[in-house]
């Protein structure tokens, strides 16, 4: 068990391509931290630097109380689950799990015990004599987990481990990974581009963009108070609607008067546009319903607002009695407004 501490990490590739532009991050002992961002944001590079698969360009990397910048991956006491699992195709599942232990000079009976234990935990005992090619995608994923587990490392590193699974299996494995991590209390760094996976798995999220950290926080902090336009639109599905502040001001009584200095863009989550008028002060927007999408428990309304060309999405529970083409009024309270500055991309106010 160990904490992980990143201090001013940078990585520049030949040709002056900056993949990681100065990252500071503390991962507490036992914490599950998810690195999330679009492809090319530097999240995988960052994880691979922690693993020792990429050299650390600048900065200092601590695992536990050691500086590990120049240590071999094997010396860092970490285990990694790869996106494509990276199982050794010529070895049985048992040998795949045992290989790292053998290389570290563990005794035969110790290896046997640990492999059986990990296999039991993941319910893959009957797969042990098989070769990877005889396994389904989900089983391979479990074996890849087992290979990390069996080592009892100070930290788990996950590199998009669920992205090769179908949707149903992905949800199932997500839950299992979360439960496993709760049980083992092993410090974990998890990379994904899927914001839902990030929200549901992480104790804390690190949202990355263009090699920099946009925001660090618990999933709810990030959802409720996105620190930047990027985070606001990246986290949450359907994505947050954005309006020029002047557009709303034309419609909105004095409700917008106390927006922080510098606000010129206001974000509103699709859930915060209500058909029913609340009994609080609110502003009202008129719109035409262009498309209605019923998704069972919830519905998505694609509307076009008067005097605003941008399509807007609204999410409501159940199925409201609406028809396409009709004019609808929506109500928004002051609390639902996220103030941003377009130029800096930052959230305004404290």
């Amino acid at each position: 068990m160990a904490s992980i501490k990143l201090e001013g990490l940078r990585k520049t590739y030949p040709g002056n391509v900056q993949a990681v532009k100065g990252i500071d991050l503390d991962v507490a002992d036992g914490e599950f931290v998810v690195l999330v961002g679009p492809s090319g944001c530097g999240k995988s590079t960052l994880l691979r630097m922690v693993a020792g698969l990429e050299s650390v360009g600048e900065g200092t990397l601590h695992i536990g109380d050691r500086v590990v910048n120049d240590l071999e991956p094997a010396q860092r006491d970490i285990a990694m689950v790869f996106q494509n699992y990276a199982l050794y195709p010529h070895m049985t599942v048992f040998d795949n799990l045992a290989y790292g232990l053998k290389n570290r000079g563990h005794q035969r009976d110790e290896i046997e015990r640990r492999v059986q234990e990990a296999a039991k935990m993941l319910e893959i005992e009957e797969l042990l004599p098989r070769k990877p090619r005889q396994l389904s995608g989900g089983q391979r994923q479990r074996v890849a987990m087992g290979r990390a587990l069996v080592r009892e490392p100070a930290a788990f590193l996950f590199d998009e481990p669920l992205s090769n699974l179908d949707a149903k299996l992905r949800v199932q494995m997500r839950v299992e990974i979360k439960q496993l991590q709760r049980r083992l209390q092993t410090t974990s760094l998890y990379v994904t581009h899927d914001q839902l996976e990030a929200m549901t798995l992480g104790d804390r999220l690190v949202v990355l963009n263009g090699g920099r950290i946009e925001q660090v926080g618990t999933p709810m902090e990030i959802y409720l108070r996105p620190a930047s336009l990027f985070v606001a639109t990246f986290i949450g599905s359907p994505a947050m609607n954005l309006f020029p502040v002047d557009y709303l001001r034309e419609r909105g009584s004095g409700l917008l008067d106390d927006l922080p200095e510098g606000t010129d863009i206001v974000g509103i989550r699709p859930d915060d546009l209500h058909i029913q008028a609340p009994d609080k002060r609110h502003l009202i927007v008129e719109s035409t319903l262009e498309l209605f999408e019923a998704a069972g428990a919830e519905s998505h309304l694609y509307v076009r607002l008067e005097g605003n060309d941008q399509p807007t999405v609204i999410r409501t529970a159940g199925q409201p009695p609406v028809t396409e083409g009709e004019t609808l009024r929506f109500h928004v309270t002051r609390e639902a407004l996220h103030p941003f500055n377009r130029e800096s991309g930052r959230r305004m106010g404290v």
Binding site: A51, M80, N84
Partner: peptide, 14 residues
Amino acid sequence: VPEEMLEAARVDGA
């Protein structure tokens, strides 16, 4: 040969 073979082996201490 997939890049991850070497990477996994190195994490495994080979």
